[in-house]
Design a protein around this nucleic acid. Sequence first.
DNA 1: GCAATCTCTTGACAACTGTCAAGAGACGGC
DNA 2: GCCGTCTCTTGACAGTTGTCAAGAGATTGC
Lengths: 213, 213
Amino acid sequence: MPSTTTTTKSPAKAPRRAPADKFDERRNQLAESALQTLGELGYARTSLREIANNSEFSHGVVHYYFSDKTELIVYCVTYYKAQCVRRYDGVVADSSSPEDLLDAFAAKLVETLTDEAPMHRLWYDLRTQSMFEESLREAVLMIDGTLQDMIWRVVSRYAELSGVEVAMSPSAAYGVLDGLFQQALLSYLTGDQQGALDVLVGQVHALMPLTLA
Amino acid sequence: MPSTTTTTKSPAKAPRRAPADKFDERRNQLAESALQTLGELGYARTSLREIANNSEFSHGVVHYYFSDKTELIVYCVTYYKAQCVRRYDGVVADSSSPEDLLDAFAAKLVETLTDEAPMHRLWYDLRTQSMFEESLREAVLMIDGTLQDMIWRVVSRYAELSGVEVAMSPSAAYGVLDGLFQQALLSYLTGDQQGALDVLVGQVHALMPLTLA
DNA sequence: GCAATCTCTTGACAACTGTCAAGAGACGGC
DNA sequence: GCCGTCTCTTGACAGTTGTCAAGAGATTGC
């Protein structure tokens, strides 16, 4: 088993004597640009040249900041997901009743599904590819773990506000909610959008009480 | 909306005067061979030459039986999934108590996860790609529908044997079970296999009663 | 046994891919 | 101002891809 922590490796053999921040700054700038393209085309069909074309740089610069394509992709998704795992913290902190929490949680789900559908399909793309490509697994399993923790904070707070214990494992709670969200995403992207959102809200409202003892 | 039924289009402009079955036979033969390669490498990284190499034919023959790569892939997965949607029919027919059904269902899930993991990851791969690639959607949504029906037959029979009504929509039941199965598949392929199977059995046993009123 | 059709192979094509080397510009310290 | 380093561009490379045309075998109808 390789180390499980270092997600931000420095590129192949970049010197980086100077600012030390400027380098990471550019990396993030490039990552944000790349995420746009990746969210549009998906992992497999996004070429480094396409990423560069949609940025203000030329195609050679990618290899200055990343050692290869896999490192770029992994960095991008890790970078994005790191900003997402706190998405429901406000919901958890501000709600004072189980009903409030449930409504706010469902609303947040709808919001992110609407606003960031390309990012979500990219994440599912990467996670699926990790079933084939060994080199993606470490990052994917790490991210999946943080998402599970994120959901668990919501579910356990929901139970706390309800005054009962949770009746599901963190893994099961994440699995079922993720299944519903993924289904909604597919429906949202392939069919009528409003219907997908409505169904998701209904299903989450129906499911969450079942996580309680 | 295009037609929703014709999954077995004839290729671009193949004449096919003769046996009329021989042609489909070869198609299926090629599909089964291609499925092996696709299950191993995934949708994006499987080339037509690789498919041909793992078969007894040369790379040109693919274009004799399929008009392009997309048609081949869609045909393969549709062909495979058509054999799978009856997987739990025996379970549904033979069980005489809810406990029997639940045990048999979980056992079947474990069996298919063990025996056909590459086929399952291929399906999830295709479904995810359909979020990016318009041309895959029709087939994916059709297959997804038949899988939902398959799960619904299990769940509604489970309720019938329990003497109560189902408390979930077909969509929700499929969504949550699919989420758990996908999670188990990822865990099975990336970590310890036995653990993934045990967790899946436990989660399914815990979840199924929750589908009842 | 001939001819027409089906079946499959071979070879080529244009396009695209990740990668990298060579070098131009910019920027900083001195 | 000058030199060293950082930053980025350009151009090229070898390999791979989907696609298709030309034609060789094989099979069938007559």
